[in-house]
Nucleic acid binder design. Sequence first.
DNA 1: CGCCTGACGAAAC
DNA 2: GGTTTCGCCAGGC
Length: 141
Amino acid sequence: MRRLTLNLFTMAKAKKSIPAKKEKLSVVTPSGKKENSFFEQVYEVARQIPRGRVTSYGAIAFCLGTKLSARMVGWAMNGAGQVKPKVPAHRVVNRNGMLSGKHHFGGNTMQKLLEKEGIKVKNDTVVDFEKKFWDPSDQLF
DNA sequence: CGCCTGACGAAAC
DNA sequence: GGTTTCGCCAGGC
């Protein structure tokens, strides 16, 4: 298990060396600011997540070059529901595949959305997380 | 202007 | 191997 997790993370790392240059975005940050910032980058990446797939905060952060700030990614999702182009925040979970954000969706909305996309959720955790995992780095190319 | 908090993650105990 | 602590960075108070 751990090895698998390690693998997928390693995978992300392997793909590293990616410039990860995402700019000129105009989205509204949680605070209401309309400027290019870390948040918009997160939103954009999140929006790239294919239906039926999931990714982790850390992966996104990594993709943006701020892997040490996975927290910011998660926090950025806080405003995901406010931005116009809907951001599939429900497809973003923590590195364990756990729906850590379901609490913010209210009830089990998050889980329902995921299951609707064919993702099985058990005990607030994505089943076969590794298989459903989508590397944000892919969309950079 | 400084302190606390936060949808994470990884190292240290 | 489970639990606690710290780091990161931006925003709220």
